[in-house]
Amino acid sequence: EKTLKIVADSEEEAEALAKELAEKYNLEVTIERNPEEEGKYVITIKIKP
């Protein structure tokens, strides 16, 4: 299993990107607040072998 993390500037941007990735590529995608940067969100994508 591989994990890729993407940082987005807004929750709306994160949700839109996560939804597109999940639907288009059938990936497991989660969104959470970035504890290191206020106002940023981390999109985590898990790629199963």
Rank of each mutant, 00 (worst) to 15 (best):
R33C: 05
V29W: 13
K40L: 05
I47W: 06
Y41V: 04
E11M: 08
E23Y: 11
K5T: 15
Y41E: 00
N26K: 10
P35E: 11
A18N: 01
N26S: 11
V29H: 02
L21H: 02
Y41M: 03
N34C: 14
E23C: 09
S10L: 01
E12I: 09
I47N: 03
I45S: 02
A18C: 10
Y41Q: 00
G39E: 05
K40V: 05
K24L: 14
E15N: 13
N26M: 07
L27C: 14
T44V: 09
K2C: 15
V7K: 07
G39L: 03
K2G: 15
E32I: 07
A22N: 14
A18F: 10
A18Y: 12
K24G: 05
T44M: 06
E36P: 08
T44A: 03
K40C: 06
A14K: 01
V42Q: 02
E38D: 11
K24T: 11
S10C: 03
I45A: 13
V7Q: 12
K40E: 04
E38P: 10
G39R: 04
K19G: 04
A16M: 07
L21Q: 01
K19N: 08
E23V: 11
E38L: 12
K48T: 13
I47H: 04
E20V: 14
R33D: 06
N26F: 11
V7C: 15
E13G: 03
E15I: 12
E37R: 08
A22R: 14
K40Y: 03
E32T: 08
P49W: 13
E1P: 04
T30N: 05
E36Q: 08
V29C: 04
L4C: 15
N34R: 07
E20G: 08
A8H: 01
E1Q: 03
E13V: 08
L17V: 06
K46W: 14
L27M: 11
P49Y: 14
P49Q: 11
I31C: 04
A22L: 12
A14N: 00
K46Q: 09
E11H: 08
T44W: 12
E13M: 10
V7R: 08
E32P: 00
I45D: 00
K2L: 15
Y41T: 02
L4P: 02
I31L: 03
V7P: 14
E12C: 06
N34S: 13
K2M: 14
I45H: 01
Y25V: 03
E11I: 11
E36D: 14
V29F: 13
L17G: 00
A8N: 01
E28M: 07
A16H: 07
E20D: 08
V42W: 06
E1F: 04
T30L: 07
P35V: 10
S10P: 00
A14T: 01
E15K: 10
V42K: 01
A22K: 14
S10V: 01
A8C: 13
E11P: 06
E13Q: 10
V29P: 11
L4Y: 15
E23L: 11
E1N: 06
N26A: 09
E15V: 10
I43M: 02
K19A: 11
S10H: 02
E15F: 13
Y25M: 04
I45K: 00
T44Q: 05
K48R: 11
P49A: 11
V42M: 04
A8Y: 02
G39A: 03
K2V: 15
V7D: 14
I43S: 00
I6N: 01
T3P: 15
I43F: 02
D9G: 05
E38F: 11
K48V: 13
A16F: 08
D9E: 09
E37D: 08
E28V: 08
K19Y: 08
S10Y: 02
E13S: 07
K19Q: 10
Y25W: 06
P49K: 02
T30V: 05
S10W: 01
G39H: 06
P35A: 09
K19P: 00
I43N: 00
K5P: 06
K2N: 15
K24F: 12
L17Q: 03
A22D: 02
L17W: 03
E20M: 14
K40G: 06
E15Q: 12
A14W: 01
A18M: 11
E12Y: 10
V29A: 06
K46Y: 15
L21M: 13
K19T: 07
A22S: 10
I47R: 04
A18K: 09
K24D: 12
E23A: 10
K24W: 12
E1H: 08
P49I: 11
K19S: 09
A8V: 15
R33G: 05
A22Y: 13
I43Y: 01
I43W: 01
E32N: 07
E13K: 07
E23F: 09
V29K: 00
L27N: 10
I45F: 04
K5N: 14
A8F: 04
I6Q: 02
V7G: 10
A8T: 12
E28D: 07
N26D: 09
E15Y: 14
T30G: 02
E20P: 02
E28C: 09
V7I: 12
E32R: 02
K24I: 12
N26L: 05
I47C: 15
A16V: 06
L21G: 00
E36A: 07
P35K: 10
K5S: 14
T44E: 05
S10T: 11
A16R: 12
I47S: 02
K40F: 04
K40M: 04
P35M: 12
D9P: 03
P35C: 05
E37H: 12
Y25K: 02
A22W: 14
K2P: 14
A18Q: 05
T3E: 15
I47D: 03
A18R: 07
E1C: 12
D9S: 07
A22H: 13
E28T: 13
E13H: 12
P35D: 08
E36S: 11
K48F: 12
L27Y: 15
L4T: 09
E11Q: 09
T44R: 02
E12F: 07
N34T: 07
V7L: 11
A22G: 11
L17P: 00
K2F: 14
L4K: 06
I31V: 09
K48G: 12
E15W: 09
K46S: 09
D9H: 05
E28P: 14
K24S: 07
K46T: 14
E37M: 10
A14G: 02
K48Q: 14
P49E: 08
I43E: 00
K5L: 14
K46G: 04
K48S: 11
L27T: 15
L27G: 15
A8S: 07
I47E: 04
L21R: 00
E13Y: 09
E15M: 13
E1T: 05
T3S: 04
E23K: 12
K2D: 15
L4H: 14
A18D: 00
P49R: 01
L27H: 13
I6C: 10
A14L: 02
T3W: 14
V7N: 15
L17I: 12
L17A: 02
T30E: 05
G39M: 05
E1G: 06
E13L: 10
E32W: 04
I45L: 06
V29N: 00
